[in-house]
Design a protein around this nucleic acid. Structure first.
Length: 734
DNA sequence: TAAACCGTTGTTTTT
DNA sequence: CAACGGTTTA
């Protein structure tokens, strides 16, 4: 096949280090790429280069972190060499593979993908069935437990065998039941997509072998954020040809709560003997001031391989740090500054606003609204979580997978059609007894005793509706959604004052569906549902739309903008309070270091201008609370950073030091009672053993008094070292 | 069965 | 301040 040969186009403009990575030949390759060092460029150009070298497009698999990044990479490769390569996320790659092959594991290919909320609902029902105490066995806690286990590739059986104690054994028990429920419903959760793929590879070597033959090259972006199952999948795929390219930056690892393992990157050379390593330390994105500031901050991380990024760019404008009375004043200032940047010639899409949590978007949105500055909150996941969208998806899902009990439970009485809790409970009992799905139980409901004729009628009506819907031609998803809406009177059956809101959500959903129909004429209903299940927030961001994007720091990874605003640099927000809970001292704390990396990711997104803001007061759950400046602000250098009036420079007056701040934080959060187990003399002296309602037992390793209060460091048996600050009256004898 | 009410609870980040 | 679960009442 004749190919337009353009090697000069592919390697032109690359630096030596970039070219070394792009043109590397056979064998494992690790590209440690600092922020802004052209990492995406290296991957796309490497793929293009490989194709130029004669590798068939079909023999390349590239994995990115989001679908949007995948689309972008595919587009860029196509622009370079005119060929379409396979780029996807781990999850969608696995989903597609499993649709083809999961029958080998005795499962049906029309499986439903459950999101976290679906999973929690399943667990909630199990916890109820088992009559467990819902505070010890909170569904969310159990879900987190299962998630951690799955990230470690540990099955329910394994957990049951290794469980220590009653609580742990119960967790494992629920895990086992959860797996059963999902199997009954023919559903997979996010983690299962990865785990079932691994299971398939080990139980059906012929499938793995076929994939290994096919993939001459495997390329994985953002390797620092891969978890163990993903690492194993990448490893499996490259098994025959041993051509794996991993690209990543340990300083940007921000998903440890989802099982991401920095070790996958750090120990890459041991896992793949003979690895060639290319390090990219030159930054082509950010001004000198921005890069120096970000570097100064990240340098405070202890668990880190030192790396010094250098930029060729000018120092540029100073970074602006500003403090405001509250988050509304903060938002207003951000909007005003953004407006000025636009007047100076920046376009709206060159500007971005980042925050730690989605809750923070509201005040900034409001301010942008007041100034009539177009903006868009990047939050597709939030949209798909809307009740209306989940309802409609459940209707569609049940058509694809009639065994999906979770979807059936969601819609059997939505809108209300007279099928109440008691009727549903009877259906569940019948389904369990006859080993049927709930829909089958509905079908056979006339044989059920103890159902009122009213309930019978309602069930018959639902069954009729289901049958009518399933007979419709599923060619266009939008047409199907419209039929669901029409036949259920979905919008009309809401209270009149809600109908406008519901209609709006429905219309946006219909827009998404139509767009899917247009782009994937052959995709079908199952394809749509799969895509909907695997969206990330940024996937829904329209980068073309002329509006300032607002997004979380997590979503910002991999993007860049001329001007960046990071809001809410406050203790408890960034770093987030959850990260401060276990360890408040020093920087040996992994959770705190991840928060710092998050800040680092945010700062390094900026090309020319960086604005960092915080507020004195923040409204948390309806209550206004004092907010302290983030400790990360103290870590910024003085040079190249302009602190606006009202904003004190680091350490000014000697009162804003780290210790005092930590104290105040602890004072607020950690005032709890402590029991002394043994030890005489000074009640809170070193060596005294204590018991804490949350942390359990431990031994005091450091103690001092602060006025009427005590500051102690305790080494807890199960939780490690924790610093506590407590008033004397909060301490009681054993 | 469904609406209305009340109390509890939690509360980051997202494939 | 939500959202959710459970209870009571029509």
């Amino acid at each position: 096949m004749p190919r337009k040969s353009r090697p000069e186009k592919i390697t032109a403009g690359l630096t030596d280090a970039q070219r070394e990575a792009v043109c590397y030949g056979e064998g494992p390759l690790l590209v440690v790429a600092g922020a802004g060092s052209g990492k995406t460029r290296v991957i796309t150009h490497r793929i293009a280069y490989l194709l130029e070298q004669g590798v068939l497009a079909d023999g390349v698999i590239a994995v990115t972190f989001t679908n949007k990044a995948a689309d972008e990479m595919r587009r860029r490769v196509e622009a370079l060499v005119g060929e379409e390569v396979h780029v996807s996320t781990f999850h969608s790659f696995c989903a597609r593979l499993l649709r083809r092959e999961i029958f080998r594991l005795g499962r049906d290919p029309s499986f439903t993908i459950y999101d976290r909320a679906d999973s929690v609902r399943v667990i909630r029902r199990i916890v109820k069935d088992l009559e467990l105490d819902t505070s010890t066995f909170a569904p969310g806690t159990i879900m987190a437990y299962i998630g951690v286990r799955k990230d470690r590739v540990e099955g329910a059986e394994e957990c049951r065998k290794t469980a220590l104690g009653v609580v742990d054994r119960t967790f494992a028990e629920v895990y086992g039941r959860y797996e059963e429920k999902l199997t009954e419903s023919n559903a997979l959760d996010f983690d299962d997509l990865l785990l079932k793929t691994l299971e398939l590879f080990s139980l059906c070597p012929e499938v793995l072998q076929q994939r290994q033959e096919r993939y001459l090259h495997v390329l994985v972006d953002e390797y620092q954020d891969t978890n163990l199952p993903q690492h194993l999948i990448a490893r499996a795929l490259q098994g025959k040809h041993r051509n794996i390219t991993a690209v990543g930056d340990p300083d940007q690892m921000i998903y440890s709560w989802r099982g991401a393992r920095m070790e996958n990157l750090m120990e890459f050379e041991e896992d793949f003997p003979g690895t060639h390593v290319v390090t990219l330390e030159r930054n082509y994105r950010s001004s000198g001031n921005i890069l120096r500031t970000a570097s100064a901050c990240i340098r405070n991380n202890v668990f880190r391989r030192p790396k010094e990024l250098r930029t060729e760019r000018d120092d540029g404008a100073a970074i602006v740090v500003a403090r405001f009375a509250d988050s509304y004043a903060e938002g207003q200032w951000v909007a005003e500054q953004a407006g000025e940047l636009v007047e100076d010639g920046l376009s709206l899409t060159d500007i971005a606003v980042f925050y730690r949590t989605k809750l923070q978007s509201a005040p900034v949105e409001e301010a942008f609204g007041l100034l009539a500055l177009p903006h868009q909150v990047v939050d597709s996941v939030g949209f798909y979580d809307r009740r209306e969208v989940k309802d409609l998806r459940a209707y569609l899902q049940l058509l694809v997978n009639p065994r999906d009990n979770e979807s059936l439970l969601r819609i059997i009485n939505t809108p209300r059609r007279g099928i109440g809790n008691r009727t549903v409970a009877k259906l569940q009992a019948a389904a369990e007894a006859r080993r049927q799905s709930l829909l089958e139980a509905v079908r056979d409901a006339q044989q059920l005793e103890g159902l009122s004729s009213r309930a019978q009628g309602a069930l018959a009506g639902f069954l009729k509706l289901y049958r009518e819907l399933s007979e419709l031609d599923a060619g266009k998803v939008a047409a199907l959604v419209k039929q669901v809406l029409k036949r259920t009177q979905y919008v009309e059956r809401h209270p009149p004052d809600q109908q406008a809101d519901v209609q709006e959500v429905v219309d946006v959903f219909l827009g998404i569906v139509r767009q899917y129909d247009r782009r994937h004429p052959e995709g079908g209903l199952m394809g749509f549902l799969e895509q909907a299940a695997l969206v990330s927030d940024v996937d829904g961001w329209n980068a073309q739309a002329s509006a300032v994007p607002f997004m979380t720091l997590h979503s910002a990874k991999g993007l860049e903008f001329d001007a960046v605003f990071i809001v809410g640099l406050e203790e408890g927000v960034l770093p987030h309070r959850r990260a401060l809970e276990d360890n408040v001292y020093g920087s040996e704390d992994p959770a705190l270091e991840e928060e710092r990396r998050l800040f680092y990711v945010g700062m390094t997104r900026a090309r020319h201008r960086l604005f960092i803001t915080h507020a004195r007061k923040r409204t948390v759950r309806g209550r206004e609370e004092e907010a302290l400046p983030s400790r990360f602000l103290d870590e910024l250098p003085e040079e190249g950073v302009e602190r606006l009036p009202g904003e004190e420079p680091a350490g000014a007056g000697g009162s804003a030091g780290g210790f005092a701040r930590e104290m105040e934080y602890v004072l607020k959060r950690k005032r709890v009672s402590l029991r002394i187990l043994e030890g005489a003399g000074d009640r809170l002296a070193k060596g005294v053993r204590v018991s804490h309602p949350h942390y359990g037992e431990g031994e005091i390793i450091e103690s001092s008094s602060l006025g009427t209060r005590h500051v102690i460091r305790v080494n807890f048996i199960e939780h490690g070292t924790v610093t506590l600050l407590l008033p004397a009256e909060d301490v009681g004898p054993a």
